[in-house]
Amino acid sequence: MKTHKLSNSRRKAFIGVIFLLPFFIHFAIFQIYPFFSTLATSFTNANLMSLTQKFVGFKNYVSVLQDKLFIISLKNTFIYLLIDGVGVVVFGMLMALALNKKIRGLSFFRTTYYIPVLVDWTIVSIVFLFILEPNFGIANYFLRELGLPTQKFLTTPKQALIIIAIASVWKGVGYYAVLFLAALQDVPETLKEAASLDGAGPVRIFFSISLPHMMPVVVFVVLMAFIGSLKGFDQFYIMTSGGPARSTTTIMYYFYEVAFTNMNTSKGATIAILFTIIVLAFTGTQRLLSNKLSGVEGVN
């Protein structure tokens, strides 16, 4: 029997592959296969109520792109993205700056602000529903006590999307604050002290020294925050089910409704593919812009 002795480096590489294999198997089964299966389904008339399906070409794509609700859901998604995505970045940075100060009880505040991140969306949504109940909720109770007009909150299309976005900012801001805080603490004190000796104030120090130094983390946070916003689903499902009057129907919610409530899997798959293309285009553009701004080749 002929045996082959592997060189040391090849053996190490082989062991590396063995260790990576479980991930690749998982990735292939739960990411690659579903993606191509979804892509294939989008070209059929598959329906959960039907055991057969046939190829229909681009019919589903034409149907989805002409669908008024798809356009509404796109619009809602981007409004939500603007409020939530920008909100968590701006407030995350402000919170990080506040938490970077040497104040008494700092650990308590850091922990407190992070707690909403750990709470599941289901619980957050139910609590918000109780607070914002338009007739008997706590929020309107306080507004009445203060002599202010009561609000309809989640039951009016004028406010529902904005309120959910604000709830998302409240829930997510702690996570991004921690990332910003770590980056802030990485800024060399010597640079800030030198700038201070040269007469720079805190604002100037932040914009001229801290922010450029933090830019890779800022780029990462912006990317993650925006992707997180685009993927939002639980809060819409629990708090409003896409209503009232479609004002909170985002793409993810619309995809769910079409594929699983209406059982139209082929149209649902088409929405998923179109959404993937939009997210890829969006994140690709954002990365290009961010790389130019931060002067780095890529952020991982």
């Binding site: 309809k152 039951t155 009016t156 299309p157 209503g243 009232p244 009057a245 479609r246 409704e257 409530t261 209406n262």
Partner: peptide
């Protein structure tokens, strides 16, 4: 159901 529900919400909530 969803189509009529949208119409009802348009009237009641909007």
């Amino acid at each position: 159901d969803t189509i009529v529900y949208d119409a009802i919400q348009q009237v009641i909530n909007n």
